[in-house]
Design a protein around this nucleic acid. Sequence first.
DNA 1: CGGCAGGATGAATAATTGCTCGTGAGCTTG
DNA 2: CAAGCTCACGAGCAATTATTCATCCTGCCG
Lengths: 314, 314
Amino acid sequence: MNSVDRKLDDAARAAWLSHIGGMKQDEIAQVMGISRQSAQRLLSQAHAAGLVKVRIDHPIARCMGIAARLRERYGLDTCEVVPSLGGPAETGAAVASATGDMIERWLSSRSSLVMGLGTGRTLRAAIEHLPHIDCAQHRIVSLTGNIAPDGSTAHYNVLFTIADKVSATTYPMPMPVISASPEERAALIGQKTLETARGLAQRTDVRFIGVGTIADPAPLALDGFISTEDQDRLIAKGAVGELIGWVFDERGNLIEDSVNARVSSAPMGADPKEPTIACAFGPDKVAAIRAAIRGRLVNGLITDEDTAVALTET
Amino acid sequence: MNSVDRKLDDAARAAWLSHIGGMKQDEIAQVMGISRQSAQRLLSQAHAAGLVKVRIDHPIARCMGIAARLRERYGLDTCEVVPSLGGPAETGAAVASATGDMIERWLSSRSSLVMGLGTGRTLRAAIEHLPHIDCAQHRIVSLTGNIAPDGSTAHYNVLFTIADKVSATTYPMPMPVISASPEERAALIGQKTLETARGLAQRTDVRFIGVGTIADPAPLALDGFISTEDQDRLIAKGAVGELIGWVFDERGNLIEDSVNARVSSAPMGADPKEPTIACAFGPDKVAAIRAAIRGRLVNGLITDEDTAVALTET
DNA sequence: CGGCAGGATGAATAATTGCTCGTGAGCTTG
DNA sequence: CAAGCTCACGAGCAATTATTCATCCTGCCG
């Protein structure tokens, strides 16, 4: 057995004794026959390796209330609101944690299903919160391209991350979110080898996607999928947000533009039949999120308290 | 809203900040506008109310849980469960490795102690995993005979193997596990030169022993210590297992039989004062192991996950 | 064979967390 | 309305945990 694995075994053991067994480091050290410092190191390693998953199992009344209002107001099927914590980083972790829990619930289903994943920092963090799950019965398909214009895999890619965590078959989309031209898009999505993936993307049982803004900071611009001119033109046409590349206005209608003509992601329409859940938060994104739920491009939302409150206002 | 609920909401929020947000109590206090002590109280409440769910995302966690159940159910002092791997060989290596670790832990003790060793394939493999240890302060004594009926040293002998690894003085028992007759047994164990060894065997500080089945494959029969008639008769009397030759029934009571009258091993009784640890695994051995721990012939167990699960059932 | 880099170890120390206790505000009750 | 009671609060202290640092061990290369 590999020595790293061995060590991680011990780390997991120590973590179990500490968190489940409620033992203190001294006791763990004694039981495991090591020094207290070593026990502490193991615990620290277990934590660093993400072996320790914590979840707060309590519906905070205020959040529940806001979630209920949002559900009612926008006709959402699913809406989860987590408390806003100290800063964006903490709040992001909270939203990611909630998203991860929901993804886990879906993946725990016995029956086989197809899960579609978009992109987004939050989504990515959610996947990292996910425990290892054995769910070979499921298939997970990317709803959008997985590579940046420069050919690298985009840093916010989630599909490759989830492949490390779960045993489900994953289907990436090896292409940019937005192609250079409509012709290139046509050529890329027409690839024979992508038929399965594209087919699956059209019949997902559940989708989790992030929400991007078009005004700065626009992920599409940051990653070089659209130019500053594109961005300005889109804004002039009323664009406020995008979901897996599809750019829409404040009413949630896709914008007629050359950019949308180059998006190679799975199609998105209003009132999806299956759960389509947006995971996003932050003051910047309020307009984009509101447009997405107003236009019923999604029927589910996971966000934080502050964002949720902003969405109930006006 | 009820004041208890409100409090619990705050507790949950504090827990989010602490566990998901990774903030320290000072920071939580600042963010929530309360004193550090209040924050601490909220966290403590959240914990007490079971709001904080922790799990360890590692195969070992399952094993730890099962081990805890076994300890409780059978009143074991020590119980270690290792993950079941691909096949019996790999799993055996894992159990042996765990056993070796525990033996090593005992041998690392500064103070002088007497360790008793039984037989068994697993125990043998455990010794082979042992590193070289300088521990002249200890004495290691065989709890059972070290030679086969044909005069050879039984292939599963562990005492000679450990002598290569550690510098402790070893005391073998140059006789068969089970003698040909009660008279032969009396003559053998009466040998003057064995006085020291027998004396040590009676006051071991810790014992590691394997568990054998009486139904095929029965090590005692395979090695020719008992005849097929013996075996059948023992089974008819309800024998399910043996520890260093002592044959017992499903309740862990030694069986009244000529075989047990010929066993030359160290005596075994229920509820040993000192740690007496069984190392065994495999579906064949479940009944024998269960009987041994039910009858409290041993107070410790090292096994694999599958076996452990089988032991928790029924 | 010796020296060196890297990692592991344990002691000392710093930081953080948990607990106890006295105080006082707010509520109940006579 | 006052006495008594409860309970939350924060200070101080004890316990526990995290970090730092010097040292040691180990494997590896010259």
